[in-house]
C-alpha cells in the first residue's frame, strides 16, 4: 500500500483534536506492533492498531475516520497495558470514535434493535454499547 504523505495530506486540526480528546501523546509510538500482535480483534479490523497510530500521527484523517478499526475495538485494554511507550491506545480509539459520534452520527441505532434481542441482553451490554456507539 502506497500512502502519499505531504503537507497537503496532513490535517493538523484532526491531529490536534485526537490529541485533545484522547489526552494521549500518540506521536511517541515507535511502531513496534505489540498492540496489533496482542489485539484479540485484529483479524476483523481493516487497519491494524499500529497503523492507526502512524496514520493519525501523519494526520491522514480520511483513512483513519473511514476505517472500521475503532468501531471493532472492544476497549479491552490489552494494547494499552503492553505498550512499551506507555500510550493508552484505547483512549486514542475513543477519540477517533468521538470525532464521528460528536457529529450526531450513531454507529448503532437503539431504535433499530429488535425487541427479541433487547429482551435477552443484560443491561450492561446495552449501557456499554450505547456509550461507545451512540452519539
Amino acid at each position: 500500500m502506497t500512502i502519499e504523505i505531504s503537507d497537503k495530506t496532513y490535517d493538523e486540526e484532526f491531529v490536534k483534536k485526537v490529541e485533545e480528546i484522547s489526552g494521549e501523546n500518540f506521536h511517541k509510538c515507535m511502531q513496534c506492533g505489540t498492540c496489533s500482535g496482542g489485539c484479540p480483534m485484529i483479524e476483523h479490523m481493516d487497519i491494524p492498531p499500529r497503523q492507526i497510530m502512524i496514520l493519525t500521527h501523519f494526520g491522514l484523517k480520511d483513512k483513519v475516520i473511514s476505517s472500521k478499526t475503532a468501531w471493532i475495538c472492544a476497549t479491552c485494554n490489552a494494547c494499552s497495558v503492553r505498550c512499551p511507550r506507555g500510550i493508552e491506545l484505547t483512549k486514542v480509539m475513543e477519540a477517533i470514535r468521538q470525532l464521528t459520534l460528536r457529529k450526531n452520527i450513531n454507529y448503532v441505532e437503539p431504535s433499530a434493535i429488535s425487541e427479541e434481542i433487547m429482551a435477552g441482553l443484560p443491561q450492561i451490554a446495552l449501557v456499554s454499547c450505547f456509550r461507545k456507539h451512540t452519539s
Binding site: P40, M41, H44, W71, I72, A74, T75, C76, A78, Y107, V108, I113, I117, L121, A125, L126, S128, C129, K132, H133
Partner: peptide, 11 residues
C-alpha cells in the same frame, strides 16, 4: 482475553 464485550450487540 476479551469476550468481545458490547460488540456482541454492535457486531
Amino acid at each position: 482475553d476479551c469476550c468481545s464485550s458490547y460488540q456482541i450487540l454492535s457486531n
